[in-house]
């Protein structure tokens, strides 16, 4: 058995698994031991003493129930606390997008590098996977990391971990998804951080439309998202100074957004995706339904949505000056 913790999640698994093995092993030995001893000692025809049987049955049973309740309760609290404390990824985790479909894993790094059925990650750094499916439910399973999460077609699910050792590990689909389910496998390549940076490649910057303002990484998801933003006509409403009033996109990433119904949501992947596909689901404060925005369901691919998300992320500190309907990138030669 492999009990060496190869990742943060594997360490948690091993602790609880080992404790349960000790507990279960003790109970199995106790029960089987008693059965064997009793069946031998009290076999028909043996001269064993059969007098002095147990009385106080109720007290004995109550004791057993109490002991079990305490043991199970303690095991639960410990395991659940480990799970709960590690449910939220650290804020600085590296985000990687996973799109699952029958029968492959598509991986997108924010810098623009894409892979299929391979996932390269750096060790010693929290990695957060944001996953969605294009068809049925799949499940992203790295046995070596003792980690698994279903990948749904309806919304993003996430998974995070820190890999501790370099190496190549299995990636399996563990939720039955049709004919080639057992072929929906891949490899996770955990690398030293420097090597990982080399693998990611250089990320040259695209100069911003106006000189002197921050640009976006070339070929990165955010740059792709900017093209999608113009290609789909989002810029008609969602840029500063547009003729139609629309909720702002700058500064919403990872910040609270007030809704018309008084609730507050966080500007995260889930919210952005939902607002693109179902603009009426969450109406921002100050706007009245129905939303003027049409749904982009069926028009926009999962990859384009992740690009748009990365683009909106890049607007966290405000719009780069000059990005407005007047200066459409097509005028500067950039293909939508």
């Amino acid at each position: 058995m492999i009990l060496d913790p190869s990742s943060s999640s594997a360490a948690r698994f091993s602790d609880v698994f080992t404790a349960l093995m000790v507990f279960a092993g003790a109970i199995v030995l106790l029960v089987l031991g008693l059965v064997v001893v009793y069946c031998t000692r009290y076999r028909a025809g043996s001269g064993a003493d059969r007098s002095g049987r147990l009385v106080h049955v109720g007290k004995l049973e109550a004791l057993a129930i109490g002991a079990m309740a305490v043991t199970f309760g303690a095991l639960f609290v410990w395991a659940a606390k480990l799970y709960f404390d590690n449910a939220t990824p650290p804020a600085d985790a590296r985000t990687i997008y996973i799109v699952a479909r029958q029968w492959m894993w598509k991986v997108e790094h924010p810098g623009g590098r894409r892979e299929i059925n391979e996932l390269h990650i750096p060790i010693g750094e929290p990695v957060r996977l944001v996953m969605i499916s294009q068809d049925v439910i799949h499940s992203f399973f790295i046995p070596r990391f003792r980690l698994k999460q279903d990948v749904l077609p309806t919304r993003y699910t996430t998974l995070w971990f820190v890999a501790y050792e370099p190496g190549e590990f299995h990636l399996f689909c563990s939720q039955y998804c049709g004919a080639d389910h057992s072929q929906m496998r891949g490899t996770v390549v955990a690398m030293e951080p420097a090597e990982f940076q080399r693998w990611l490649g250089p990320s040259p910057m695209v100069p911003a439309p106006v000189p002197g303002t921050p640009g976006t990484p070339q070929g990165g998801l955010a740059a792709g998202g900017r093209s999608v933003f113009f290609a789909l006509g989002c810029n008609a409403c969602h840029v500063p100074g547009a003729s139609v009033r629309a909720p702002r996109l700058d500064g919403i990433w990872d910040r609270p957004i007030a809704l018309r119904n008084g609730q507050t949501v966080t500007g995260d992947e889930q919210y952005i995706r939902e607002s693109i596909l179902d603009p009426n689901a969450k109406i921002s404060a100050g706007y009245t339904p129905p939303s003027l925005m049409p749904t982009y369901r069926g028009t926009v691919t999962p990859e384009q949505i992740t690009q748009l998300i990365e683009f909106i992320k890049s607007l966290r500190d405000g719009w780069p000056p000059g990005l407005s309907p007047v200066q459409h990138p097509s005028q500067t030669g950039e293909k939508p």
């Binding site: 609880v16 029960v31 095991l75 639960f76």
Partner: peptide
């Protein structure tokens, strides 16, 4: 039955534990 049910039942505790189930689920 007693022996095998005991093993089956105790492994039920493994799959009731969240950090363990996350690994062994669907395996």
């Amino acid at each position: 039955f007693v022996g095998l049910f005991t093993i089956g039942g105790l492994t039920g505790l493994f799959v009731a534990s969240l950090p363990v189930d996350v690994h062994v689920h669907d395996t």
